[in-house]
Every structure is written in structure tokens, then in C-alpha cells.
Simulated assay, not measured.
Amino acid sequence: MRETRHIVQLWKQGGASVLVTLVRAEGSSYRRPGARLLLGASGEYAGTISGGCLETEVVRKAEWMVRNGAVVERYSTMFDDTADIPFGLGCGGVVDLLLEPANTVECQALMAALEGAVAGEDATVLTWLPRERRALQRAVLAASGDYIFASDGLTESELVVARAAVLGRDGIENVPSGIFGERIVAPQRLFVLGAGDDAKPLVSMAALLGWGVSVADGRVQLTRSERFPEAERVMTVSKGLYETLGIRTNDAVVLMTHSYEQDRDLLAAVLPIRPRYLGLLGSRHRSSLLVSEVAEMLKWTVAECCAQIYAPVGLDLGGDGPEAIALAVIAEMQACCMGKRGTSRRLLAEDVDRHIREGGGARYLQVQCAMDIA
């Protein structure tokens, strides 16, 4: 989402020329579908569609490629001297990039959806990819499922079928062939409840991910905006007024006030909301005492409380100090919010032959990465 913020900022400056979107990835790819790059008026750009290897090539040719309208270009990073694919870098996959002029109503509708997402409004974007005798067309649905934009020329039946697919059981994965569908979602919200010095690196790291961060504490001397310049909100919250924070079920929350009483009251207030992630800083003994008391306060079982809490907070990464703790907490939150387990993907020796065999013995094109050129 931080990247989306940068793209929106560049767009609002005016003069953008080309928007590039990764719409398909097969095999190994540094970025996944939905990654974007916006080319500015003076050749500057925001966003990425690879690890940095494709950007130089794409930016150099983008305006020429869209001289007759939007196009889809395929880039291969695997060596295959029989394929009619214009690029090879040695990463091991194939990507399709949609390049579209920035001055069209379709691009403007997409950018409006991205700007809305930064402000907290989810949307669904459906793009009928350009092909022979059919130009790019696009439709945007609000979170309610109602269309808020549709290109001229899209038929009622096309819109009905696409909307039914998006709202169906399989959702965005079930859109008809030839349509690139994506959810444009608001930034992950994080509530850091506790404004001590150890909260500073946690707020900074979350902001680097593009999350919307709110900091709250009952101590006025700590809840100063200059202590947390990356936070969207820094609030002083009195006891009994925790409901004014506006925490929702899809939010992430970390309790780190270092006050047993405050953490107990906050835990009792936040647990019934059942946020997506709820972390509790402190030792196992302290956390056990808190859970035991809060379970009695809420008339919950200890098991019900433990099922909703990550305590002690953070992955077991090792290290010491506020920065190491913040990294462990951020890593656990990221995994939880993305529906992952947070386990290592380390390549094992027994996997090597299998991966090569399954890949058909494909070799990689040995070329110099554009980023390595002086």
C-alpha cells in the first residue's frame, strides 16, 4: 500500500503518461498480478513491476508502446530460444504487462479507485484486456457491489455476468476469460495501544509497509505527535473511553502500555471486537495473569481468550531491544493479516533435483541486469 500511496501522489502532480500493470505471472516472478508502475511527465516513475530488472526497459519504451492505445506485452525471464518473447533476465518466469495511456477515462477511473483505497474505501476493478479489434475497457464496483464506472461500449449483459462472477462464491478468481479482476483494498490499519519509546520502531516499520497507524495511550506526556511523525493519529485516551478508538474486526492491535491495569482494561475492551490480529506484549507469566483476569471479567473461557490473542507477541526471531522486538511483531502481524503461517521457505537439498526436473531442465538466459549497468 505504501507503493500505491506513491503512485497516487505522482498522479496528483499531473502530467502522468503511462500506467503499467502486471496482469499475469507464470512461474517465478518478483511481483504478483496487480503490481503497478506509473510513468510521470519527466520520466520519473512510482511503483515497480519487477525487482528492478524490467523497469528500465519498460520505462524507455512505454510511451512508444501505447502510441495507438493500450497493449499487453509479454516478458519472459526464462531462456527459450524458440519463443517469440521480447526479453530474458534469468528470474525464471513469464509476466504479462498491461500498458495504457494515462489520459483515458479508463485510467482515470482506476486512479480514482486507488486514491479512494488510500482514503479507506475498498473497490473492485474489472479490466477487459485489449485484443484484436477491441480496445481496453474497464468497470469499477464500489464495496457495495454497485458499478460506479463503466466504459462506453460495455454491454449490459457483460456487466451483469462480470458482477455476478465477482459477487459469487469464488469472487474475483471467477471472472470470465479476458478480464483482469482485482480487489483494491484500503491499507491495513494498526492500533498501537501504548506510546512508550519501544512503540516508535513499531510505528515506523508499519508505516514503511503503507499501513495506517494510530497510537493511543492514557499518558498525555507520551501522546505527542512529534514522537510518532509516521502515525496518522496520536491520541490520548482516558480509562473507559477505549470504544472511541473505532477498532474494527479487520484491524491489527498491539497492547504495549507496560501498565498491567491499562493492558487489562484494554484487553477486556478489545477482545470482544475480535480484531484480525491482537498482540499482547509481555512475558508468558504476565500474559497468563492478564488472560485469566480478563476471561473472568468477560465471562469467557481461558481457551476462548487465548484463541484470539498472540502472546507473547511476535515471531521468535531472536535479538534484543525495541527494533528487534518491533521486527518480530511486524513479521507476525504481516503473516497473520495475509493469511500466512510465517514459516521459512528455505530451499532444501532434496528439493533441488525435483524443481529442476519439474521445470523440464530449463536453463536461464545469462544476461546483465539493467540495475547492474553503471
Rank of each mutant, 00 (worst) to 15 (best):
G116W: 03
A117T: 01
V118H: 02
A119T: 05
A119L: 14
G120D: 03
E121N: 11
A123G: 06
A123E: 03
V125R: 01
L126K: 02
T127C: 14
T127P: 00
L129M: 12
P130G: 12
R131Y: 14
R131V: 11
E132H: 13
R133N: 14
R134K: 15
L136H: 09
R138F: 08
R138E: 15
A139T: 09
V140Q: 00
A142S: 11
G145Q: 01
G145V: 03
G145L: 09
D146A: 15
D146N: 14
Y147I: 07
I148W: 09
I148Q: 15
S151P: 02
G153F: 09
G153C: 10
E156I: 08
E156N: 12
E158W: 05
E158P: 05
V160K: 13
R163Y: 03
L167W: 04
L167E: 10
G171A: 10
I172C: 10
I172A: 08
E173S: 14
E173G: 08
N174W: 03
S177V: 13
S177M: 11
E182H: 06
R183H: 12
I184W: 02
Q188Y: 11
L190W: 00
L190E: 00
F191D: 03
V192S: 00
L193W: 00
G194S: 10
G194V: 04
D198T: 08
A199Y: 00
A199I: 01
P201Y: 07
S204Y: 04
M205R: 01
L209C: 11
G210N: 04
W211I: 12
V213N: 00
V213W: 04
S214P: 03
V215A: 06
A216Q: 05
A216W: 04
D217C: 08
R219K: 12
S225H: 13
E226N: 06
E226I: 08
E230K: 00
V237F: 03
V237I: 13
G240N: 05
L241D: 15
L241V: 12
L241R: 13
Y242G: 07
